[in-house]
Design a protein around this nucleic acid. Sequence first.
DNA 1: ATTATTGCAAATCCTTTGCAGTACC
DNA 2: GGTACTGCAAAGGATTTGCAATAAT
Lengths: 143, 143
Amino acid sequence: MQIQPKIIKDFKKALSSEGLRFTEQRLQVLEDILSSDSHRDCNEIFQSIKIKGHQVSIPTIYRTLDVLVDYGFIRKLDIGDGAVKYEKKLGHPRHDHMICIESGKIIEFIDERIEQVQDEIASNNDYEIVGRVHQLFVKPKKK
Amino acid sequence: MQIQPKIIKDFKKALSSEGLRFTEQRLQVLEDILSSDSHRDCNEIFQSIKIKGHQVSIPTIYRTLDVLVDYGFIRKLDIGDGAVKYEKKLGHPRHDHMICIESGKIIEFIDERIEQVQDEIASNNDYEIVGRVHQLFVKPKKK
DNA sequence: ATTATTGCAAATCCTTTGCAGTACC
DNA sequence: GGTACTGCAAAGGATTTGCAATAAT
């Protein structure tokens, strides 16, 4: 599960463009998120890094998450019940989430019709959309 | 801004049906929310009650909010940035929210087409919807 | 009288901050 | 060498909990 050298290069470039520094900790956090397909919070990322035998403190993870969101490497999700999670963004286009309240399973979906209506509604009110939060909480259908 | 006697009667009935008690504090919280059209958090409700010359402690407000949500008198909103707000539900049908990131203004909207697509998506995955979180973060459109 | 409810203080949980030491450019 | 970064411990803010006193049924 190695991440591409190009991504690391891009990351270094993004950091240096703002006078930020490339550190082992920031790399650990980036690698950990990019090599996972799940939606995780700070503590889960912390545990995951620790299991690999590395160590990054919680405050540093929070600080790094902010940087990674700002530079578009990851996405911050507010799952609706107060939980904040992060997911990779690179090679992972925008989508909404359907969350099963029984199993906790999260299904990603996207629907062009919804996007269009959203844009139309915002536009009708003289606004433009800068962010969307759209989650469906579901349970298995009874036959 | 007096709330209807019928609502208080319904509230008493709902409470007693579960062995819960009708108290001055619970009534204060219910009245305060039903007589407001805004989306507010616990502290705002606390302040509002205090200004009227009444007093309900923060823990009691939280406990009451849970009860009111359970009985369908109010709705709990997760506005996306970690903020949790409450709004009245009675006489106030389901809707989504458009939040201006510049002014903080919240506009309510509902669109039948979106509802239908949501139901279709859930159904296609053998789920049924039990809850929806749908917020658009917007900013004024530039001419 | 019984037992749910209240308010207080303290405890949680999650996230952020101040700061001294460390590492990157 | 100068300054951003890290980790620690402590601070914050929002929400919850234990408990003794109080009030509703």
